[in-house]
Design a protein around this nucleic acid. Structure first.
Lengths: 108, 108
DNA sequence: CCGTTATTTAACATTTACGTTAAATAACGA
DNA sequence: TCGTTATTTAACGTAAATGTTAAATAACGG
């Protein structure tokens, strides 16, 4: 089960957020490819990847000495589901507007 | 402008996540109402609210000595938008399934 | 087997986060 | 004005996060 606070904590760091975005855009990548993206030591990147992994945000696949990382769709879906669970709150005014425009143009 | 890493950091703490959820469910509440929710001192709650405020997640309204807090829909929308921006990645298989079921039942 | 490459783990320093209690502010009502 | 209530700020201790360099692992290709 995905713990939402863990997921959010993992994405709360700019380096990790960028990693996740790159992985979503390009798909699975080896750790080394991510190292060259950032002005940061290899070990630092490795630990960020570990945080992402432990949060369930990425998967790791070994091929020879390479470790391929990829974002786990379930994790992203969990965030999306959470926002959708509360959609009634945050989309309230937009919904009302939609309704008024689309269905119910009765008030002034 | 809402900084996504700040938003995620704010939601990365279980106490703050619960606060936000309660505020979304019940709407605007004074700080004191939130204090009684948690086994934690008033000052601790106050600081959590400050973190949420500085992240742009909640608004504060003063009425007498009370401070009413409410979740800012824009912040939630920002998260939702981010997930939607990457929907092509995480909803990929579901989309494909949807498409196949709905539109294009041509393959085996 | 050996040197090279890819990546992680260990050890360490520094900053940030978070909780506590005590004190400060500010509005309220007698 | 004074004591009470609501909330925040200050001061402090401790734990967690993050970066660094050095060392450990492990697969690769001669």
């Amino acid at each position: 089960m995905i713990k939402l606070t863990k997921t959010f904590a993992a994405l709360a760091d700019p380096t990790r957020l960028r990693m996740v975005e790159r992985l979503m855009g390009e798909g699975e990548l080896p750790a080394g490819d991510l190292v060259s993206d950032f002005e940061m030591s290899g070990p630092a990147i490795s630990r960020h990847l570990k945080v992402l992994r432990e949060a369930g945000l990425v998967s790791q696949r070994a091929v020879g000495t390479h470790r391929y990382y990829a974002v786990r769709p379930e994790a992203m879906r969990a965030i999306s589901n959470w926002t959708m669970d509360h959609r009634a709150f945050w989309a309230e005014s937009l919904d009302r507007l939609d309704s008024l425009l689309a269905l119910d143009p009765e008030e002034d």
